[in-house]
Computed example of a mutant assay.
Amino acid sequence: MSRAFLNEDKFEQAGDELVERPISPHPNYVTPRGFRLLSEEAARLDTLRKQLIARKDDPFAIQQKAEVERDLRYFGARMESAIVVDPATQPVTEVRFGAVVEVEDENGDVHTFAIVGEDEADIANNHVSWVSPLARALIGAKVGDVVRWRRPAGDMELEITNINYPLEENA
């Protein structure tokens, strides 16, 4: 299509529109550690925003400031909607939010997963969101129970071998 048929001002503005970060529709359960991490990230972003304000003549800084402000809105909303769940208040005999669960898979391999809030999830550190298929399979189970984890790669049975609710916030 010829550029003559495009409204160049609108075309250029469309690339500048910053899309808001999506907010999960699920309740925002967080561990005390998770709430601390949200607060720390919001504080870091606020400091960065203040630094970028000083560079008001730099087009890159203006764009970066817009992104930082968008992220600040996201973290502010997540902190405002946070439902802090202290793992120490959970039943020690059952997998619930905040649990660190040890399982043995069908091959005899042992895995440990912490069930945390959506913003805390980090599979590289075995922190899984409470809304993930794995956490949903584990929640409500007790030591000795075998649960079915429904995965795209095929279902897997996991036996719960240990349930722990860490007192340390770094879990």
Rank of each mutant, 00 (worst) to 15 (best):
G154V: 05
N28G: 03
E118H: 09
F113L: 08
D119W: 03
P91W: 03
V116Y: 03
I83Y: 02
R33E: 06
T31M: 00
G15I: 00
Y29A: 02
G15H: 09
F75V: 02
D109I: 12
A124P: 01
P133F: 12
G117F: 06
Q63R: 10
Q51K: 09
T89Q: 14
E104N: 04
R36P: 01
F35W: 10
D109C: 03
D119L: 11
N126E: 05
E104P: 01
I115T: 02
E102V: 12
K56W: 13
E106P: 09
L134T: 01
S39L: 10
K56G: 02
D119I: 01
H26W: 08
M156S: 09
D46W: 10
V92P: 08
R3W: 15
S129Q: 13
R96L: 07
E157G: 06
F11N: 04
P166N: 04
L38R: 01
T161C: 13
Q13V: 00
L6H: 02
V128E: 04
I160V: 15
A88Y: 01
Q90S: 02
A124Y: 06
V30F: 00
R55I: 14
T93M: 07
P87G: 00
K50A: 11
A114S: 08
N125D: 09
V84Q: 02
F60K: 12
E40M: 06
H26F: 14
L158P: 13
A141C: 06
D86A: 04
E17R: 11
D122R: 09
E104H: 00
K10P: 02
T112F: 02
E102W: 14
N162F: 15
D58L: 09
W149L: 11
L167Y: 14
E104G: 00
E67W: 07
V19S: 10
G140W: 07
E80Q: 15
A82S: 08
A171M: 01
P32R: 12
N164P: 00
L72Q: 10
K10R: 14
Y165V: 10
T47C: 05
S2F: 09
D122A: 13
E106R: 08
N164W: 13
R36S: 12
N7V: 08
I62E: 07
I53C: 07
G15W: 07
D58E: 08
G108K: 02
D46T: 05
P152G: 00
E8V: 13
F11C: 06
E157M: 13
F5E: 11
A66G: 04
E12Q: 12
V92L: 10
A82L: 01
E106F: 11
Q90Y: 00
E67T: 11
A61P: 09
I123T: 07
M79R: 13
R78V: 02
A42Y: 11
Y74R: 02
L45F: 11
V131C: 06
I83T: 08
I62M: 15
H127I: 04
A82Q: 00
N126S: 10
R21K: 12
G144R: 13
D122S: 12
K65W: 05
R150E: 12
R36G: 09
K65V: 01
R21G: 00
P133Y: 11
Q64N: 03
A43P: 06
N7D: 13
E67P: 03
